[in-house]
Simulated assay, not measured.
Amino acid sequence: MRVYPDQLLRNLSPLPQCCLIFGDDPWLCDQSRTALHQIAKQQGFDEKIQLTQETGFSWNELIDQWQAMSLFSSRRIIELTLPTAKPGTEGSAMFQSLMQMDNPDVLLILTGPKLALEQTKSKWFKSLDAKGVYVPCITPEGAQFQRWLDGRINHYSLTLSRDSREMLFALYEGNLLAADQALQLLQLLSPTAPIEPEQLSQYFEDQSRFSVFQLTDAMLSNQQDKAQHILSQLKSEGVAMPIILWSLFKELGVLLQLKTAEVNGQALQGLWSKLRIWDKRKPLYQQAIKRLSLAQVETLLSTSSTLELKLKQQGIEDWTGLSHICLLFDAKAHDALKHIALD
Rank of each mutant, 00 (worst) to 15 (best):
D206F: 00
L82R: 15
F169W: 06
K86G: 09
A143D: 06
I77Q: 12
E166G: 10
L115M: 13
E79F: 13
M99C: 11
Y156A: 03
I195V: 09
L128N: 12
A178W: 01
R152K: 13
A179L: 01
P87T: 13
E166M: 15
L185H: 00
K121A: 15
Q187V: 03
E205D: 12
L149F: 01
N103C: 14
P191I: 07
S97V: 10
A182T: 01
K121F: 09
F213W: 05
G142N: 08
W124F: 06
L128A: 12
R76A: 05
R209A: 13
E198K: 14
P104Q: 14
M101A: 13
F213D: 06
E79I: 11
S157H: 08
S161W: 13
R152G: 05
T84D: 14
P191H: 04
Q181V: 03
G88Q: 11
G91R: 13
G91M: 14
L82G: 15
T216M: 02
N103E: 10
E205Q: 13
K114L: 05
E198T: 10
R162K: 13
F213Y: 10
T81C: 15
L82H: 11
F210Y: 15
R152L: 03
L168S: 04
K121Y: 08
L215W: 08
S74Y: 03
Q181R: 07
P83E: 11
R209V: 15
G174T: 03
I78G: 12
F213E: 09
M99I: 10
W148N: 01
Y203W: 10
R152S: 05
M99K: 11
L117G: 09
P104E: 14
L107S: 15
L149Y: 01
Q214W: 02
M94D: 08
D206M: 06
L171S: 00
F204E: 01
A85S: 12
G151A: 09
S221L: 01
G174Y: 05
N103P: 14
K126R: 14
I78N: 15
L176M: 09
Q199Y: 01
R76L: 02
S164C: 07
F145Y: 04
W124Y: 10
C137N: 07
F145M: 03
L149S: 07
M101C: 11
F210N: 11
D150S: 12
K121W: 09
M94R: 13
P104Y: 14
Y134I: 04
E173N: 09
T216D: 03
W124K: 08
W148G: 07
R76M: 03
M101F: 11
Q96P: 04
Q207I: 06
Q146K: 06
T81M: 15
G132K: 05
I138G: 02
A179C: 01
Y156C: 00
F204T: 06
H155K: 01
S208M: 02
D150T: 12
L168G: 03
S92K: 11
C137V: 00
S164F: 05
S127L: 00
L220C: 02
D180C: 05
V212E: 08
C137F: 02
T216K: 04
R147Y: 03
P194E: 02
T216I: 07
V106G: 09
I195Y: 01
Q144A: 15
L168P: 00
L149V: 02
A143Q: 09
E79L: 14
L82Q: 13
T120D: 11
I195W: 04
L188C: 04
S92N: 12
E205F: 09
T111Y: 15
